[in-house]
């Protein structure tokens, strides 16, 4: 049972470290899906910049938390 639980946690842990960050990524993808169908390739640029931006934001936020 313990083994199954740690296997389950490991599988979830592959994709989710910070639940808020994962939720933001999914929201960005959801918004991107809507935008791509209306704006086409131009929406891809915004999608990629938002995804790259959240990487910078959350890495910096975690660094600030760990330095406190």
């Amino acid at each position: 049972m313990k083994f199954l639980r740690s296997a389950g946690e490991a599988v979830v842990g592959l994709f989710v470290g910070d639940w808020v960050q994962s939720a933001i990524v999914l929201v960005i993808l959801g918004a991107g899906w809507l935008a791509v169908s209306r704006l086409g390739a131009a929406a891809l640029v915004v999608l990629v910049l938002l995804l790259a931006g959240q990487l910078v934001w959350f890495a910096r936020a975690e660094a600030q938390r760990s330095k406190r």
Binding site: F15, V16, G17, Q21, S22, V25, L29, L51, L55, E62
Partner: peptide
């Protein structure tokens, strides 16, 4: 994407 971002983070 979620998996790669975890590694990159």
């Amino acid at each position: 994407l979620l998996f790669g971002l975890r590694w990159l983070h």
